[in-house]
Nucleic acid binder design. Sequence first.
DNA 1: TAACCTAGTTACCTCAAGGTGCCTAATTGA
DNA 2: TCAATTAGGCACCTTGAGGTAACTAGGTTA
Lengths: 120, 120
Amino acid sequence: MHKVTVLDKKGALDCPIRDVINRIGDKWSLLILVVLSEQPTRFNELKRTIGDISQKVLTKVLKELEQEGYITRTAFDESPPKVVYDLTEMGLSVLTPVGQLIDWAEKNHALIKEHRNKTD
Amino acid sequence: MHKVTVLDKKGALDCPIRDVINRIGDKWSLLILVVLSEQPTRFNELKRTIGDISQKVLTKVLKELEQEGYITRTAFDESPPKVVYDLTEMGLSVLTPVGQLIDWAEKNHALIKEHRNKTD
DNA sequence: TAACCTAGTTACCTCAAGGTGCCTAATTGA
DNA sequence: TCAATTAGGCACCTTGAGGTAACTAGGTTA
């Protein structure tokens, strides 16, 4: 079996997986990474593609993803402004294990929903 | 490259990965699954092992994990009460892709912290 | 008799995530 | 001249996650 001994009981202060879950476990980060994996994308383009994200939250999440090294932000000195976001190598690489989880989720989605309805 | 086309833009209502992230992306679920992967565990034993989880939240999370089919709850008719929690096959199997993500997190933890400090 | 252990439940509080709406400054097209 | 577009910033509000503390019931122990 896969041995897992990682999680930190002391409040997850320096726990790697908590850092990752705290970042991509929110409502929008994962979706943003996936959209950016298709192509570098401008701010409003991201907003339109995702559709129902608020401007405030998009700004905030992009800042955080940049700060932790998942994406880059490139501003061009034009008018109207032009800012392009893109994945870093790290941002791209996290999509591999995330993809594994997505595969698992797809395979087990029916089972989960079945359970949920059984005990509604 | 790993092609990811899963995320649902319509609010993630029926999106498999959102179901999973919403469940194990909280503060305690993942840790509980990992603890249970070592051995079936009683309620208070879980509480003591984790240490800083509140009773209310432990009860709630256990209920939800059971409802979605990740764990089982077995109550013995004794006094004082005895209730044992254990992983289901599904609960065990999710730890494989999660383990992949944990590996990634460990390998990139230093890099993430470096980025974070660079732009503090 | 009084306190303890079990597995919870309930009321109350706090904080952060996320939403809405309104503002900006330079430039372009009608 | 007026409206639209760009990438945000800011004030305000609601909701849910999670914490604390006190309570329960039956049986065991001191």
